[in-house]
Design a binder for these strands. Structure first.
Lengths: 109, 109
DNA sequence: CCCTTGTTTAAGCCTTCGCTTATATTAGCA
DNA sequence: TGCTAATATAAGCGAAGGCTTAAACAAGGG
């Protein structure tokens, strides 16, 4: 399963949004996401497994609880792939790089 | 089908890579992608339909040929969603903005 | 007009995916 | 040691997606 497929599911995207803010126990995620999507604890646990297996999240046991934390690595790879398209909607990007360079030169003088 | 699902397929990603470079006739895409993935012209035509239907590409008839051109809009939306995760691998982003501002101030003096 | 070339569409098959229900596992506490 | 709370796993089902073959359609050129 490719990283894009992992991000293809709305439940998983929502979980990642939550984990982007802070680490959470499985149960906390179930409370939020289960409510919003009307799915069971089991379903969410399976989504968490997908996120784990594909490197989007890491787990740490704290007593009986599983604390999930985001791992941005695969998202960064996706972002990397998107880079080649950015010039279509951000022609300013080159200009930005130029700006920074100009600033650096000025300060070196 | 969500934009992420559209990007989930490797054939479609490859087509978008090709269209990112230049516009191409359907047949040209078939020649490249069909070879690489070992699938039929029909299969590729169906992928092109998905890209059309979800706003990733536009078509223009030129005689019997269909010329495909990329439309970056949905990719930009995906990129937008990814924005919230960028701080995890690019803490320099804030610094970059600061740099630009500093450069602008210097030049105003 | 027909034939050929370029392309799309239809039908059907097979696999994958997400969900539910039911069951297992693990930790801590009485 | 059992009981409960928190979580994961197994089995099975239905829907969706991607592929192939076959058929349809559109544009020129003879």
């Amino acid at each position: 399963m490719h990283a894009f497929d992992v991000l293809g599911d709305p439940v998983r995207r929502r979980i990642l949004e939550i984990l982007a803010e802070d680490r959470h126990a499985s149960g906390e995620i179930v409370a939020i996401v289960g409510q919003e999507f009307g799915i069971t604890q089991s379903a969410i646990s399976q989504h968490l497994k997908v996120l784990r297996d594909h490197g989007f999240a890491t787990v740490q046991a704290e007593g009986p609880r599983r604390i999930y934390e985001i791992d941005p690595t695969p998202i960064a790879e996706v972002d990397q792939w998107l880079a080649r398209f950015r010039r279509f909607w951000e022609p300013k990007l080159e200009a930005l790089a130029v700006e920074v360079e100009r600033g650096k030169r000025k300060r070196r003088k």
